[in-house]
């Protein structure tokens, strides 16, 4: 475990906890895309199947349980909680996320490391995670005003992916550990998706103005 990997996991943990705390405390999910949250729950459900078969470390298992629990809790809050669900912007959160799931499923069937159910689902989760943020980015552009917690959430997610790329570079040079090119490319695509958000987030922070994304 290197510092980039640990920092990446902690940033990822912070992003989901920021979101869960926001929804739990102010009982509102304004600006949050349910579609993106459902996609993340699916990403974790299909990636962490090995939690019962392969034991890697206590850290690994605990983090997987936290990510599974928090992502499904967020979906439950937005779908089922009698107060939170009222602030869900159904009309604006219209990204057809099934159009993301199917291509990722097909791509996983075409390009994978091993043709086993567990490995196919794992590969599917890698592809899906790369595009899962799209409904949220679209919603942010539509609603234009970004309340700072949602902005921080997206920022932390982007930071977690950037740190993972540094982690892969570090592991390549130190452990001669080769991240499979599937992981590398999907991770790179995902990080690039955040690039323009980062630009506007940094600009707003520098000019000390409210974050506005161009339509």
């Amino acid at each position: 475990m290197n510092i980039f990997r640990l920092a990446g996991d902690m940033t990822h943990l912070a992003s989901v906890l920021v979101l869960l705390l926001k929804i739990h405390t102010i009982k509102s999910c304004a600006g949050v895309s349910l579609k993106t949250q459902e996609l993340y729950a699916l990403v974790f459900a299909t990636r962490y199947l090995d939690i019962f078969t392969d034991f890697i470390s206590v850290y690994n298992t605990v983090m997987k349980l936290i990510f599974l629990g928090s992502s499904f809790s967020i979906v439950w809050y937005i779908r089922r909680h009698k107060i939170v669900r009222r602030s869900y912007d159904k009309e604006q959160d219209t990204f057809r996320h099934y159009f993301l799931v199917l291509p990722c499923l097909l791509l996983a069937l075409l390009i994978h490391e091993k043709f086993t159910v567990k490995e196919l689902l794992w590969t599917f989760s890698i592809y899906l995670e790369a595009v899962a943020i799209l409904p949220q980015l679209v919603l942010l552009q539509r609603t234009r005003n970004i309340d700072n917690l949602t902005g921080q959430y997206v920022f932390l997610l982007g930071a977690y992916r950037s740190l993972y790329i540094l982690n892969w570079i570090y592991r390549y040079f130190t452990e001669r550990h080769f991240v499979h090119w599937i992981t590398w490319i999907a991770g790179l695509v995902q990080t690039l998706l955040y690039a323009d958000f980062f630009y506007y987030y940094f600009e707003s922070w520098k000019n000390n103005v409210k974050l506005q994304l161009p339509a």
Binding site: D9, D50, N60, M63, K64, E119
Partner: peptide, 10 residues
């Protein structure tokens, strides 16, 4: 599973 698991990252 047998041997080193395929994926050790989250």
């Amino acid at each position: 599973g047998l041997g080193q698991p395929m994926h050790d990252e989250l």
